[in-house]
Nucleic acid binder design. Structure first.
Lengths: 337, 337
DNA sequence: CTGTTAGCGCATTCAA
DNA sequence: TTGAATGCGCTAACAG
């Protein structure tokens, strides 16, 4: 492997001079600089970032830990983070926890030994607290993305889940629905709790009593066999609309509704949180859309500020707005717009 | 930061003994081992992989370079690669070239300085050759994924593009279509060339003359404004079916067809290469499906064998089968099944 | 403007 | 079974 010493020897200078040329530090004569640069070219020199990292105590690597790489929301977050990191001179080490605490722990260990400069962390659940404390104990800055973790203070970038949920439900109410079900993600995830709160708010604001039978807790990733849906349909007074906790729940829901011959929106309105790729093909779902790309971008920005110390000590809390997009999966009960 | 020296001091042994305990090398008494391990726990010791890498000359990091992280095909490849890498004790550094040679070059430089142990490379185009030669010059093993690059010999994992395309087109022919258009990706990408070859094969096998007017070259990522489609529709004898080069082209195509009031499959059949997430919601597209997860998995396996030298010198060429899945976007001309 | 010294944290080699 | 010496490739701090 070509090292700065190989370059130095060929250029008749010291290794230190080469290092200075590489890093643009110190004073170097133009002539020396040009010569060194030329020889670096000739010899295909590439700095060894491990050696450098050992000295400088930084890797210029950020880690992005997301719960589900197949979900377009998180894919878009990743794109935003990647672009921002690249721009700021950082590499991105991806991790996919699959909503699993065990996998998340493996990644935390990896992150620790890799000595990444910081972590963008979208927690698998409330139980992720210990993982974050491990990071903190080791002095690794992190920014919480999308999901808050109780008992953990830090910089955060999150969406306005409560407000978004409220908008979605009030949209349904405005259409004339009174029996509105919520099929939610696990309440061990902060976003699910906030969406539930928004749901309740909307009902209260419109004097609709809360019916616990209409509120289901599932998870964001797998919809299951439809048993939960059947329970809703068997109620004496079944819902005329469903608010799905996220995009994947909505997808599962639609599929099960189709299997049962229930039309959307004629027989049942369905709305959800987060965009679906499907909407490219067929603008169908009424959703609350979050600026996923910006989640990643802002997260990286906050993280790098924290790493470099170019920010004030208090934690920054960024809340990104969510936007109601009405499409054709919601209609008045009975299917009339 | 806690180092092996801190552990050594507290355990009244030498740093070397600690190192041996960590790596399970050499002979260590059970008593010493237990004591060292306990103190490592107490002090929250985590090995510094940079320091280790500097000595061992390996990082245990693989890099995965894909052209489009938003395409579910590549997302699934990533999942397969991630799982396999994890299993084999490697980390995965993702890169997203966005089908851009410039971005790809940036990633190659990054990969070089990070001293990753190997690269899974899905080339942006035929022009990626120099990037691969750079990797080879630096002695970094790589496996080509999905796309071959002319003039570059290496291990590869690819799909059976020609055969897949043939199956898709013969399916259309069997339905009664004779005017079949191909809206393809850039011919600077090997998969597009092979899909074209399969298209031609199918026509020839069925004595249908090739009409160059029916063959369009676009790209895999952006469908554009529909001008290309209009050109097809304005032909004296327009196509009754379109074979889209990949999933995103199919999506764009469908959208533009809808805008023009052309129904699928009644007025126009559309089939494509690669699955779409949409199919979860609504099994609609007739596709040739490739085992994306296995692309990643097999790629990592080949790569690690190459890195460890546990394979024979000749290049391994793995071709994964593609499967025709008939759904409702294809029908006989006029729309009758 | 340029070079010398020292050390980042670890594993390999060899000696005890 | 354990440990001392050495160096991986680089840069910070200082000296010339």
């Amino acid at each position: 492997m070509v090292t700065i010493y190989d370059i130095a020897k060929k250029a008749n200078v010291s290794a230190m001079t080469v290092s200075k040329v590489i890093n643009n530090t110190g004073k170097i004569s133009d002539k020396t600089r040009a010569k060194v640069k030329q020889i670096m070219e000739e010899m295909n020199y590439v700095p060894n970032s491990m050696a450098r990292g050992l000295v400088t105590q930084e890797t210029k690597i950020l880690s992005l830990l997301i719960p589900d790489i197949t979900n377009p929301f998180f894919t878009t977050v990743a794109r935003g983070a990647e672009d921002a990191a690249m721009r700021l001179g950082y590499k991105l080490l991806f991790g996919n926890s699959d909503e699993s605490l065990a996998k998340e722990k493996e990644y935390v260990d990896m992150v620790l030994s890799t000595r990444v400069d910081g972590v963008l962390f979208s927690a698998a659940s409330d139980e992720s607290g210990p993982h974050l404390q491990t990071l903190r104990r080791h002095g690794i800055p992190f920014v919480l993305l999308d999901r808050e973790v109780p008992g953990v203070e830090s910089d955060t970038v999150s969406g306005d889940n409560k407000e978004g949920a409220r908008k979605l439900v009030e949209h349904l109410i405005a259409l004339g629905h009174r029996r509105i079900a919520l099929v939610n993600g696990s309440l061990a995830v902060s976003t699910a709790r906030e969406r539930l709160a928004g749901y309740k708010d909307a009902l209260k604001l419109n004097d609709i009593p809360l019916d616990e039978n209409l509120v289901l807790e599932m998870n964001y990733k797998y919809f299951g066999d439809g048993e939960a849906l059947d329970k809703l349909l068997r109620l004496d007074s079944p819902p005329t609309a469903v608010f799905a906790g996220n995009n994947f729940i909505a997808l599962g829901l639609i599929r099960k509704l189709r299997e049962r011959g229930i039309r959307v929106p004629e027989d049942m309105s369905v709305v959800c949180f987060d965009e679906l790729d499907v909407s490219v093909l067929d603008p169908f779902f009424t959703v609350v859309s979050q600026p996923a790309y910006q989640f990643g971008e802002m997260g990286v920005r906050l993280l790098v500020e924290r790493i470099k110390g170019t920010t004030t000590p208090e934690w920054k809390k960024i809340m990104l707005p969510s936007e109601l997009i009405v499409r054709s999966s919601s209609a008045a009960p009975g299917g009339n717009k």
